[in-house]
Amino acid sequence: MKFSFTDDQRLFAEGLRELLANECPPTLVRDVWENGTGHSPELWAHLSGMGVLSMLAPESAGGMGGSFVDAILLFQELGRAAVPGPVLEHMAVAAPALASTTFGASLIAGDSIATLWVDDSPYVAHAGVADLILRDDHVLESFRTTDAHGMDGGRRLFTVSGGNRTDATPNVAGLDPFDAMALASAAYLIGLSERMIEIAAEYARVREQFGKPIGSFQAVKYLMSDALLKVEFAKAPTYRAAFSASIGADTLVRDISMAKALASEAAYRTSRSTMQVHGGIGYTWEADLQLFMKKSWALMRSYGDANFHRRRVSGFVLA
């Protein structure tokens, strides 16, 4: 029994954090929101170059050949930076699932961009910038999109019609694409939550009222420490789910659902608390907090919300 990441895994995640600190600051996220694309080709190229996008694709197809344990801290780092565009969809599902198809080479190289439509939502996230959409049993290309006005400018929503179909059976190392995305989203939500807490803690250190930094008031300390508690206790279940995915454990579905339920609730609690700590400025377009909050509100509902996943856990635990 050994519940820790290797030095290589930690170093890779630290490298990604550094890359994103430089290449994906809040100003970049805000730019892609405001220019209407929800995607940055330059950032995409950086992530491709580092091997992030192809982490889960097999080495035989030109990928990094990593497992979900190798990828889970990367999902978390992507969340810390609120990375826009179909990065999770491409990385966690499309590239590995289609690696051995005719689409594989350009997906793994990052030359073409894929997004997913594997839930029962009428909307497809990121379809406006995607070359192909992986659906339940086929791939769509040359489709038409209509903007559905998603709240998160880094995860734009569309309705999709038409397109050319190619049959495909997506399978990511034994995982259903929906479950793979639930797992990736759980880690991304944890990263978002960590960043929201950092932003609010920094604000609480400098914002003064009654002649003191507001972070010295117990009411503010409690809001912050209660949020941190939920986030910290969502981490180990998420890492465990990644391990279960990497070995195809019998408890895989239960473990992923537990992770997504806990991470979704932690992220929502964190968004409420950190916005409250900001006061009026938290309710503005100008504050960077919204970039992280809105992403968390989008992802906590995607690929199963906390209720859906809790009921799935119930099915195993109370059976």
Binding site: A201, A204, K212, P213, G215, S216, K221, S225
Partner: peptide
């Protein structure tokens, strides 16, 4: 709050 989050 004080030691982990470094609040004043």
């Amino acid at each position: 709050a004080d030691r982990v989050l470094q609040l004043p």
